[in-house]
Amino acid sequence: MAITQLSVFLMNQPGALIEAIQALSDAGINIRAMSIAEANDFGILRIIVSDTDTACKVLGDKYLFSKTEVVAALMSDRSGALYPILTALNEANINIEYMYAFTGSGPEEAYVVIRVNDVKTAEELLNANGIRTLSDESLKI
């Protein structure tokens, strides 16, 4: 069920991000969600794209990147919607490494991307709590 995130190692220097984004855009790839983690010398660009396979080809051996399975949970775009998700994970003692959110195409539709160690357990838990999670297929736009 989980969705695939691409994590790209970028040097912390002007132009590095633009170059990577440009390459993806030139190949007609839509970035559905993204976040950047930064350190002194480098950053990690984390993206969820419309076509993972093509994106991997584009990044090819020009970039250092990895594929990471993450949980994308659907929630309504209103205050307090994140709360039941976090509570469920917290009560099951599932540690969140990082997370970021994006809004969906439907009205009042939002998603939260969650990086956990055990994606399967986290998804089952969320589903059991009535929270929908997405698969790669549902993101191909």
Partner: peptide, 12 residues
């Protein structure tokens, strides 16, 4: 590539 991780903490 085999050392790279999406986790910042891991790399640090």
């Amino acid at each position: 590539p085999d050392q790279f991780s999406d986790l910042m903490g891991q790399i640090q």
